[in-house]
Amino acid sequence: MSTIKKFFYVNRKAPYGTVYALESLEVVLIGAAFEQDVTLAFIDDGVYQLMKNQSTAGIGMKNFSPTYKALGDYDVTKLYVEKESLEARGLTIDDLMDLKWEDEDDDWAENDSIRVVTSAELADIMSEQDVVLSF
């Protein structure tokens, strides 16, 4: 790949009620094969995608929340969660899955994938992107 572009995926929907969250995750995983610079943003109801303890046996749908834990393996290591969206929903980072990525070049050291950022910080990050995909 000649030039690496910055890809930004915007997630604004809750899981299960609509198919957006799952579609986004699949596109991210497929896109990861192209070895671009990938960033995910979780805004509004998108923050619900990262909730801990999801258990879908009762609704007969596939629980795709464990797949977020594989993102690190796909070199998707930047997941930004908007602080304002969390607070409006009575949530803190402790309500979210503890997502890690391992640094192969640093003896597989574990690093946090999720970073909570303010709207202003997220606006800056968004403005630096080459390609924005919205779900």
Binding site: P15, Y16, M51, K52, Q54, S55, T56, A57, G58, S65
Partner: peptide, 23 residues
């Protein structure tokens, strides 16, 4: 509805007081 809470990772103690859970 309980099964929809479970799917989304919402525990009973996270609910507003007064809500009743049904299956």
């Amino acid at each position: 509805l309980g099964p929809d809470m479970d799917a989304r990772g919402i525990k009973a103690d996270a609910l507003i007081d007064g809500f009743k859970i049904v299956d």
